[in-house]
Amino acid sequence: MKWPLRSPEIPPASSQEDGGELTVSQTSKALNTLLYRLKAANRDYRFLDLGPASGQKLEFLSQYGTKVHFEDLYRTLNSFDYLSPEDGVSYDSIFRYLLPYQRSIQFDVILGWDLLNYLRPEEFKHLMRHLTRFCRPGALLFALISTQKTIPEQPASIEIVGPETLSCKTNPRIMRKCPQYQETDLGRFMPNFRVLNSFLLRNGFKEYLFACDRG
């Protein structure tokens, strides 16, 4: 992933594509830690991927579990303009409608990728509150939080290449303001989660692995 506010040098293992899109291979220690934990318990896990579906991710995750939910929440929220808090509809109702899981569903792993940077604080808070209801105690959440002032207009398209390698495709031509969530914000928005690991990456993103304390 190339972030234009960083040095102009091209990061290693990157490739420019048509339309200004850039694909970069990224080492992910948090992902590696997550997978290590999954292997240690060795059972069939249920995944919730808040990003778009892809065959590559499905193939990788199916090594660890047979149940994978793909939500592509950023696109869903953007296309969901007929009901909004401005119309008097609560965020809780919106997320119950958009992510209508049965009470019996308990996720073991939530892959948030870089989505949280694209949510307003109220959306962030209510999304996490909604998801907490469907987390198994000890469930893990993987997220990338940007520390930069700006982020690409849309979330990156992230693929799992290997146990500690991600491939991130993004378009850094159009940028938008980044909320720059701090750990104090995360604590307020995600009271039932605690940080297990965090790693600051050279591209200005901070990788987080959270555990859900619910239950």
């Binding site: 579906a53 199916s62 869903t76």
Partner: peptide, 9 residues
């Protein structure tokens, strides 16, 4: 394009 759950149990 896919949105939903996959069960390969």
């Amino acid at each position: 394009t896919f949105k939903g759950s996959i069960d390969m149990e």
